[in-house]
Nucleic acid binder design. Sequence first.
DNA 1: TCCTTGACGAGAT
DNA 2: CATCTCGCCAAGG
Length: 108
Amino acid sequence: MAKPLTTNPQHAAFLAIIQGIPEGWVMSYGMIARAAGLPRHSRHVGVALKHLPEGVKVPWWRVVNGEGRISARGFDGSDERQRLLLEEEGVVFSDTGKIDLKRFGWMG
DNA sequence: TCCTTGACGAGAT
DNA sequence: CATCTCGCCAAGG
């Protein structure tokens, strides 16, 4: 299932790191790419999640961009759902809708 | 093989 | 803070 990309060893690394993010913490795409040993592949973290099948247990909602913002992906309210999930875990959004990565950014 | 696209990021204006 | 530009790298047309 989940016929993913052909360059897939990276995806496994990305997903493994994301699975290691504790509840109430977040990581940016760039941080995940760095932690995987691929510093310039931040975009591909998003690609991996985009191809993520439903059955897989990965806390995708704990992944935000470098500004601490939720990256819009055009799907029906999925970004709003992500914010709710994070707030349930205790993650605080500022007035401008940003997360303070100094506080909630998880350094694997 | 060339060109465009993209759940990104950093720096300049 | 809002925009713009540029760098990055794989996928798909």
